[in-house]
């Protein structure tokens, strides 16, 4: 299923309501989790989760804090490997290949499954170098011109090009919070991964920057599979095709965003979205 690349910066997809999004055909399973359990030392953080992630969908994880949604997200590109005491059981596949298989190269996996973090974390380098870092790392550009192209298209994709094109050599840390976060998204896009994981990408941003990032997510969803954790139910409702509700280490319910918000099957989901707890 080849989806042609969309012309950029012309898309005018509205900050969508759930309804308009359901209509997209999403059938191919990109990632699959079977009975995933995560332990921090002796404490179990995730109690056996099964989940399919479809190609080119936007999937949101919601739930009260400490419910394991970020932990699970970080399992999807093995970022949890960086925590010494963290242990993952079960099976997660990407295009039918087990990502926790012993011979699986985590470098390659992360090139396919990119991640954007809660707090913008640009490298203390220039804007250009921030974007060029990934492609250079993986040897994706042989010539300077190629690299320039990647940098420009990534920044355009992140809607940041017009704002920074005159100061590409200035430090990335000098941008505003929202710009920094979009820079980080552009940095991830520059490696052109299949899937982008976003861990509460807007929680450190003000409402206007949040709106921009949400719009960006919407545009990116044309060509990327996006899995995002959010604390904000309205955000899930605005951008996600499907929504998964986590509670105390369990995946309680996953369905189209519409279903989850209008007709939840589980009492806990109902209580959460109606604001009884969280």
């Amino acid at each position: 299923m080849n989806i042609p690349a969309q012309p950029m910066a012309t898309s005018s997809v509205s900050v969508g309501s759930g309804e308009s999004r359901v209509s997209k055909a999403k059938d191919k399973v990109k990632m699959n989790a079977q009975d995933v359990k995560v332990f921090y030392g002796d404490a179990q953080a995730i109690n056996g989760i099964d989940l399919d992630i479809y190609e080119n969908e936007v999937l949101a994880f919601i739930g009260p804090s400490g419910c394991g949604k970020s932990t699970f997200l970080r399992c999807l590109n093995r970022m949890n490997d960086t925590i010494d005491i963290c242990r993952v059981e079960g099976k997660i596949t990407l295009d039918q290949n087990d990502i926790y298989a012993p011979d699986r190269d985590v470098v390659l996996l992360r090139a396919q499954v990119g991640i954007v973090f809660q707090k913008p974390n640009p490298f203390p380098k220039s804007i250009y170098e921030n974007i060029a870092y990934g492609p250079r790392l993986h040897g994706l550009a042989r010539r300077k011109a190629e690299l320039d192209d990647i940098v420009e298209s990534s920044l355009r994709r992140a809607g940041l090009w017009e704002e920074v094109k005159d100061r590409l050599d200035k430090p990335g840390t000098g941008l505003s919070g929202g710009q920094q976060q979009r820079l980080c998204i552009a940095r991830t896009v520059a490696v052109s991964p299949d899937i982008i994981l976003m861990d509460e990408p807007c929680s450190a941003l003000d409402p206007i920057a949040t709106a921009k990032v949400e719009q960006l997510i919407d545009e990116l969803s044309e060509s990327y599979t996006i899995v995002m954790v959010t604390h904000n139910m309205q955000q899930a409702a605005r951008v996600a095709d499907r929504t998964a509700f986590f509670h105390m280490g369990d995946l309680v319910e996953v369905d189209t965003t519409d279903q989850i918000f209008t007709n939840p099957q589980d009492q806990r989901t109902h209580d959460y979205i109606t604001g009884r707890f969280g």
Binding site: M79, V107, R110, G114, F123, G134, L137, T188
Partner: peptide
Amino acid sequence: PKSLRDGALGLGATKSETIRQV
């Protein structure tokens, strides 16, 4: 900060690349 390391690792840098370049 750990977030910088995570940034590089998340892009698929190896540990030594993260250390040397970031």
